[in-house]
Design a protein around this nucleic acid. Structure first.
Lengths: 356, 356
DNA sequence: CTGAAAGCGCTTACAG
DNA sequence: CTGAAAGCGCTTACAG
């Protein structure tokens, strides 16, 4: 059931008409007995204002509850301090956590934050243009194909920072960007499983952010490298999506193969689906099969068996990306780039030694 | 590891200086050989423009890639088509899903969407003022104390719609708002457990959105009503937070009490924590204890045992809230209010008949 | 140290 | 049907 209430208590006209419109710079000037340019100087902290004048203006500002009109400021100065986040998703854990980090950083810096979800139906150029002509800068979450495609189309003159998958070693993205070393993390997780005695490690992949085969997704690449280094031939990865359902489907197939004793998953949602499929197939975790996820979503610690996973500092990445953008928008303010925490393997119940 | 790349390939000056600034209404006018007012008429779809003139202007618009400057539009017209969402949280499932619905609806209507997280440290009035003076309207997520407090402080003249907990029967909020019937849903869930033969149902609560004791939280209230109607004395609710950790702590205590055979939780995260605590205490679900959650988060279907829960249409609520705001911002455009789906009890493995 | 102008890119009346 | 003015609330040079 949904119900709606309304402010007006009956009539269809607002009794308190007008609602005296917000005080402008001129109102303040008049109240303080100065010209409005002087008011402008005061609110912008210009040095050349007599102390007494400044006081008078500040008093008037308080008395009238003056707040500088952001729209006029943007139009007159040609500068807009704001961020718009372009992302294909807002609810998956990695995205939501990144967004949270971005919002925190933006809020701390006094930047309004906008969110614009990109869909496959979008005309990317139009989307970017409309997001950009708000005036401020863009932060693009390029974790997936859609986000990466959007990033590629951001015009060079638009201030922009990106969150991307780890680029191939030695290659630097052509735009300011931050990333975590997923490749190394996946390698570590895979090595851990091998060290536990598993003869092979299967991988349930998240969708790749690039179309080209050459540039393999870093998590897949790290897994593959670890296997190769151990002289193991990597089996074909499975996985057709981001969520638990996709993990479940991949897991059902893997569960049928008795040779499968260790599974690395591209994220915790996939891992949850895999756990479920193994459960349905009657294969115990970790006694029969070990499962490791990626991201350390909040619930991963509380499911049974609790999930061994790679903790990612999405929050820190979000903060870093904002800082990267801000340094483009506000060249005065070159804050040091906050360094996100390294990915960490968190050992829990879902992984263990291979049963002999 | 985090690395950053930069656009400039070496020099510290941009080689392509200037980046010819965006075409203005006057540029278009000149290209089309008309005055800029005529261009204004065309882009605003005014009727009084000769067909041929319109064509000429449209051609020029395309040729120059003209996009109307949103900032100037806002300043000149005094109207801003945008929404800012005020919320205390963006990652908890109910909030994230609501936000997703809001974003979708805003995007479909061509409204930019801003997000501003409210914290306990915030000066609410300042926060609201700065969110409001972007020009557009506000959507406040009032599911919790902080959100509800923010909503209370929104000045009457600021266009605003809210998402709230179900108000007490017969009372309507004094602002346009949408809500789901959580009370009824909690009643249904509790009755279900009673019908399964449980003599009592314990409740692990989410934090209340109001400070006053009188106005009980709707989920708690529905649970209480169902018990009373069945002649059962409601036990004291537990729960000290929103997340699985809080559920775990509440669950540990409940697990020790052998009389506890059925637990309703204020959300799925709490339920996950309760399941975990019961597992640690060696109490089987649902054989020894039934657990029901609230919200139907995406992973609830995939945990083991899968979680019986109340599915909420946060998405639909978000869309409805946006529509409610839009009808205030754009009085021409009175779209019908989309009706969110009713809360539904989804039966899964975590609930079952009381063992005899 | 402070004031008078011009302008940011658009819209809304006002003229013709 | 179309053009010339004035103004939205501010800032950035320019004068004094």
């Amino acid at each position: 059931m949904i119900v709606t209430g309304h402010t007006s208590s009956g009539g269809h006209t607002d009794p308190l008409q007008g609602q005296q419109k917000a005080a402008s710079i001129r109102d303040v000037a008049q109240a303080a007995g100065v010209s409005y340019q002087t008011v402008s100087r005061v609110i912008n902290g210009h040095p050349n204002v007599r102390e007494e004048t400044r006081k008078r203006v500040e008093t008037a500002i308080h008395a009238l509850g003056f707040r500088r009109n952001a729209t006029a400021l943007a139009l007159a100065s040609g500068v807009t301090r704001s961020v718009t986040v372009l992302t294909s998703n807002t609810v998956l854990y990695g995205y939501a956590a990144t967004l949270q980090g971005l919002e925190e950083a933006a809020r701390a810096a006094g930047y309004p934050l906008g969110v614009r979800v990109v869909t496959p139906e979008d005309d990317l150029d139009r989307t970017i243009a409309s997001a950009a002509d708000t005036g401020g800068g863009l932060v693009v979450i390029g974790y997936d194909r859609l986000g990466a495609a959007a990033l590629d189309r951001v015009p060079a003159h638009v201030p922009c920072a990106a969150l991307v998958e780890a680029p191939p070693p030695g290659r630097t993205p052509d735009r300011p960007a931050v990333w975590a070393d997923d490749r190394e993390a996946a390698r570590t997780a895979t090595e851990h499983l091998l060290a536990l005695g598993h003869e092979n490690v299967h991988y349930v992949a998240i969708p790749a952010s690039t179309g080209t085969r050459r540039t393999a997704a870093p998590r897949a690449e790290g897994w593959r490298q670890a296997l190769r280094a151990a002289g193991v031939t990597p089996p074909a990865p499975s996985g057709k999506g981001w969520d638990a359902q996709a993990g479940y489907e991949a897991g059902r197939k893997l569960a049928r193969n008795p040779d499968v004793t260790a599974i690395l998953c591209g994220n915790d949602d996939l891992a949850l689906g895999v756990l479920r499929a193994l459960h349905h197939a009657g294969r115990r975790v970790p006694e029969d099969v070990s499962v490791i996820g990626f991201d350390d979503a909040p619930h991963s610690e509380f499911v049974t068996p609790s999930l061994t996973t790679v903790r990612m500092d999405f929050h820190g990445l979000g903060r870093a990306a904002f800082t990267l953008l801000r340094s483009q928008l506000d060249t005065d303010q070159q804050a040091p780039l906050p360094v996100p925490a390294e990915p960490t393997l968190v050992l829990r119940e879902s992984s263990g030694p291979r049963a002999v």
